[in-house]
Design a protein around this nucleic acid. Sequence first.
DNA 1: GGACTCCCTCAG
DNA 2: ATCGCTGAGGGAGTCC
Length: 968
Amino acid sequence: MPINENDLELFLESTSILNSSSQNSIDKTTSNAELSNIEHSTLLIPQPPLLKTGTTLSELKTQEGNDYCNHDSINETEEGGKTDSIKQQEKNDDAFEKMHSNNNNRSCNKNNSYFNPMLQSPTRMPQRYNNYDEYMENKIFQQNKNDQKLIAEYEKQFNKTYPQIFKNTNIYINGYTNPTRLQLHKLIVLHGGKFSHYLTSKRNVTHIIATNLTSKKKIEFRKYRVVQPEWIMQSIEANKLLKWQDYALLLNDTNINNTTDIKTLVTKDSTKKPHLDCNHPDFLASFFKNSRLHHLTTWKLELQNKHMKSNPVGAHHNRIKKIIYYIDFDCFFATVSGLKHNENSSLPIAVSHGQGNSDIASCNYAARSFGIKNGMWVSRAKQLCSTLKILPYEFDSYRKISETFYELLYDKFDTVIPLSVDEGVFIDYPEDIDYKGISEKCMDIRNLLSTKTKCTVSIGVSNTLVLSTLCLKSAKPNGFKIFLPHNTEKEAVAKFVGSFQLTDLPNIGHKTADKINELYSPSSIITLADLQSNLSSLSSFNKLNKLGGKLSRKIILYLKGEDDIDNISKINTPFNYFRKKSLSVDINWGIRFQTIEQVYNFIDRVVARLASQLKSINMASSQYTIKLARCKANSPIEPPKYLGMGLCDITSKTGRFPAHTNENYIMSPEIKQSFRKLYIQAPISSLRGISITLSNLKTNNDRDIGSMLDRKTNNTLDNFPRLHPPLPHDVPLTMSNTENADQMVTVTPLLPSNDNNNNNNNNNNNRRSIEKRKSRSPAREFFNNYHKKKNQERAKHHFSTEIDENALKELPLEMQKEIQREYAVINLVNSTKRSALEAPKIIPKKKLESICCFNPPIPFQKLLNPKEITARLDTWILQNIERGPRTDDALLLVQYLRRLVKFNKKSMLLYIVDHLEEQIDYYRSYYRSASDDPQTSSNHHQMPDGILQWEKLLVLKILPLRESKNRA
DNA sequence: GGACTCCCTCAG
DNA sequence: ATCGCTGAGGGAGTCC
Ligand SMILES: Nc1ccn([C@H]2C[C@H](O)[C@@H](COP(=O)(O)OP(=O)(O)OP(=O)(O)O)O2)c(=O)n1
């Protein structure tokens, strides 16, 4: 049937006429006078659709917009095959669990989590739903609320209460009825019944009202109580619930066997809504919503963006002492969830999703006394302590308390470095060390936080990061420890460090601890004191090098309580240290694919997510790595953990994009090609995990032109966004020694070898060389330009961002470079910092306006946001998937898409059409796979007619629009 | 000997 | 049921 705009107008006209006439007819057919009054009173329930039941687009206008994850369709390209070596990884479930159990309080973490658009503009965004479940739940909740309002209104208007005849029933109306669906709905609700708008929802429907059923529906509903509308009317007249069997539409088993008892009747398959498996477009969102580790990563970046502050020059001023406070909530998740559920904290509790092979995110100290650890599976923990109480996650609360934590502490310190949702490094640079003042500060903070958050924190205080970490460890739980040794007290420091276990040191996890133990004492477990004494002999000293040069040097410094270069730059130049270097999505749960197309679709969705993240931080990437986990040949097909990865072989492959890009359509085909090269000689069903990392990131100098380019006309990389001159961070830093971590570090400059030989004892010579080099340093030039440009902005900052050139000259070259980098990075990230948030932004607004003028957006049902539009379409499709689209709705949609074509909104068109295609494909494959499966095969899984109608709409009306756009 | 790839380890 | 992420540094091996 051809659809054009005239059709639409005619259609809309006839709709309104018919609507009003149908209302009149209701009045006539209703015997109850009160009921006809009802019809004319304020309607809280939207008018029913004209010709068919089901939710219409117009009904949906009142719904909140939802937001699903962004997804685009990308065509894959050709590739050649090549074997990559597959290295085995001993990632069995035990080892994995052990790894995650290894939970000490450490400071050295160089993570960035990622930008979360939801937090970027919380007020502008409509309410969001991460998946259909959530959406439906909300919708049903809203509808029940409307029903309640209706009852209240009627009771008020007629000053009476209605007999609760339909109490405990849950009624769904199928097809056309007389009285109408709306009438019946009101009567049911007013008389105490529940009304279900959807049979697809999880709600338990007790009765279906129908006057007619297609033969297919007769079979589908044969196990329901299908009742004629008279049952409702006559029950109301009789003022009691009449036997439904007397009004049954179908003669079936249920009919005969059941008494009048009302039991929920839900057939297993027909009401089941599509399962949210890894093929569902919302799988990623629903997984992330529940993944604690994803939240930890995300929160870290958010918190660093919002609350991190530092004064790099001050930090380098060697006359100033530094006091490092390492502050961490005690068993954070367990405490917060315990509070929320009013649990007694002296009883063992743990936070987890499930009761069996589910990870414990956090357990309290009562549970730890049984040997339970974070990361352990619940099943094992229950063996250790059968009374262990499992509590659910309370992600929102964790995040809120963390916000309070950083807000309260922000003004109390010179430097704030958030390391996680529950722990941060806070630094003061006092003139003199006042021990009493420090301990009072600790007590004040602990009291303050305990009052404001009802959670306890522990604090470790020292003058190096490594010692602060150890202090925190010994302060836990619910305490604080201050250890501020003088430079001369080397033995005291060594003794303090020696009292800890190997894994208490940062960067020594269980693997490294095992290795060290193996090296020095295979038969017994050694402590740090043992390691210290072993290091006195040269041969023992050399043994440690088996761990690798960097790590062994680090450990040797740590054993003396000193920070290595890594820790020092983390403290002194945190903005540089935590600058973004890569961006990735890893999914190793719920991955169960059957076909390569499904994998490609999944990769498309992952890359779309990455691309939009890149764009949102205005960066581009030139390198990617795809990492795959494949179920080991001899391991069971389903691992112990539900939908877990189990024992896997891990392989990865790195590739390059033709240039720096943040475009989905460039990245996705490349990555899919690598997938085909990497994933060979194994069935798709063995795939258990996919990880995609983008690296070699660069910040775009200009606006994100790339994302605004038309895909077809501007797909040459020459048009790519111009980038900043590279930040001068490629110069390696070499540390010769740190006599005293509290003092200026000595750096070996990267000088010609003859200078290098005497740089320790010839300071002048050294300085001159630095001066010479400095003048032609591109980094310096870059910084100077940058400095000029950003001068004005910088004046706004709450800390001095004016670099003291004289002070800078005093420093070794490498330090200068690092400080310069720090300034550059600070300026780059400042737009997301708290200080910048307080000042209104001018430039982005202007840009936005100019874009809008140039390119006025086309609304769809008053919506402009593409995600809101697709969300509305998703709901529409979901609710009509088995019936097919209504003609008028289809017309509205097609008309909108034609406008997009007409006004050249190509990317929007592509986005919407791709999205529709994906949705419809998904449902088609859902029904197909269900009917192909001999075990669940039944009438309930037959491909509904509606699907065919949706496909027809897609293929005949929608896809051609995309093609016409391509030809244009 | 430097650049690059493919792991491995760690953190929370 | 169950939500096993993600960012960083580093080392061994390979290639030229
Ligand atoms: N394997 C892990 C480790 C930690 N976390 C989460 C839950 C923790 O509450 C939070 C903070 O981690 P910590 O290492 O600080 O551990 P806790 O706060 O639980 O205990 P504590 O710090 O008292 O040792 O991170 C997690 O989900 N899984």
